[in-house]
Design a binder for these strands. Structure first.
Length: 221
DNA sequence: ATCCCGAGGG
DNA sequence: CCCTCTGGAT
């Protein structure tokens, strides 16, 4: 069996169990993961949660979304912000999936990157959350914040931080680490004042040791 | 006022 | 490289 066949089998199983949530991270049906990941940019989980049932009950499959009116989709995804652009992106992505990929979300990086609204970060998250495939660790706005953990300065090249993080973990867990870091960066290791008192990584965090315990930085709860 | 699970475009 | 797109949280 080749990897494309394996992906198809995986997709079939996923469509049987479309919603798998673990530790607050959405896994499962690649179509849903893709759409939710695009919608999640620059927004809160609450906004995405509000939109999700409405969107997927009206457009359960790529074919349904591909046939949708962009204005109608825009009205639905409005609470997530950037709604006109996001509506154009997800409908355009659905159309490309239907027209060029036989209605299935592709499971290769190069193919995912062709979809409108999908860049390196979105593609990475889709690969790991939907297919369990790891291409390395790329968490963008989070790499800078996770650099607190490594004790690297903000001036450090993002590419170097990314490389260091990737080197820290074995390949087999890149995907889950990627997803979990993003989740952690959203919930706990947030911009501004990180919620260090709620952080399970305190024991290893150089930022916490140097800045917080050293009483040089105030943290929120 | 400032920032956020970015990507596309000039 | 810098701008824009938007709403919501802090």
């Amino acid at each position: 069996m080749d990897s494309d066949t394996a992906c198809s089998i995986y997709r079939a199983l996923c469509s049987c169990y479309p919603e798998r949530i673990e530790n607050g991270i959405s896994y499962g049906d690649p179509f849903r993961v893709l759409i939710l990941t695009i919608l999640s940019a620059q927004t809160t989980d609450r906004s995405v949660e509000a939109v999700r049932p409405v969107l997927f009950s009206r457009y359960p499959s790529p074919a349904d979304l591909a046939a949708a009116d962009v204005e109608e989709v825009a009205a639905i995804v409005r609470p997530t912000g950037f709604y006109r652009m996001k509506a154009r992106h997800i409908v355009g992505a659905a159309r490309m999936i239907v027209e060029e990929y036989g209605g299935s979300v592709p499971c290769r990086m190069e193919d995912l990157l062709r979809l409108p609204g999908v860049g390196r970060k979105t593609a990475n998250i889709v690969l790991s959350n939907a297919f369990g495939i790891s291409e390395g660790i790329a968490v963008d706005t989070h790499v800078r914040r996770i650099s607190r953990l490594l004790g690297l300065t903000d001036a450090g090249e993002p590419a170097k931080i990314e490389k260091d993080l990737t080197a820290l973990f074995p390949r087999a867990v890149w995907g889950s680490v990627n997803a979990l870091l993003v989740q952690h960066g959203r919930a706990v290791c947030i911009a501004g004042r990180p919620r260090c008192t709620a952080c399970v990584l305190r024991a290893w965090c150089r930022y916490y040791r140097d800045e917080v315990q050293g009483n040089r930085i105030a943290t929120s709860t």
